[in-house]
Amino acid sequence: MSVRHALLALLSDGAKYGLQLRNEFEARTGEVWPLNVGQVYQTLARLERDGLVAVEDRGADGPQRLYRITRAGRRELEEWLVTPPDLSAPPRDELVMKVLVAAELEGVDVRAMIQAHRRYLISVMQQWTRVKGDESALDLHLALAVDAEIFRLEALVRWLDAAEGRLKRHPLARRAQPARPATRKTEARP
């Protein structure tokens, strides 16, 4: 999540104070991406340094400073919105690494290990689904952010399903015999 661009977006409909920006950010997506007030002021200072925001009253200190977006800030925001994030290089996903390593190790019960990870991921998905709760009281920004997280976790579950199927059919995986527990009990805490 680009805090920098989120703040520019919040400033695009009018000048705001730092605390106000933090509150608006938290109200929209705080349950997904919590933000402390220090991060807000640090990011605002960088935006000011880069000429993307300007301070209305230079004499005021921290909480009394009113920020507004500059013309360069609006251009930066517009450009960021239409620039696809760089997803060309696959991330070094820890879950993927664990399964790849387990598939190579003799005596690891990969199926049980995959199930433990699957249970954990679905437990986390259950918690996010509960955040969505009552639809009528659901904030749109929060719903979109929670959906994104649920889709991300679901993709991992689907990958585990596919990995389990592939390992079952692959001769390399068949030689591995479960000899010791491969996993520790995972807690349903993200």
């Binding site: 199930q115 699957r118 249970r119 679905i122 349903a188």
Partner: peptide
């Protein structure tokens, strides 16, 4: 579908005709 299952209070996993695992209940979580 894991998204549908995530609405449940409890998710039970079945393999080869046996229940092999389940998530904690919502109250436990």
């Amino acid at each position: 579908d894991a998204q549908l299952a995530s609405w449940a209070d409890r998710v039970v996993f079945i393999r080869d005709g046996r229940i092999v695992d389940q998530t904690s209940t919502s109250a436990d979580v």
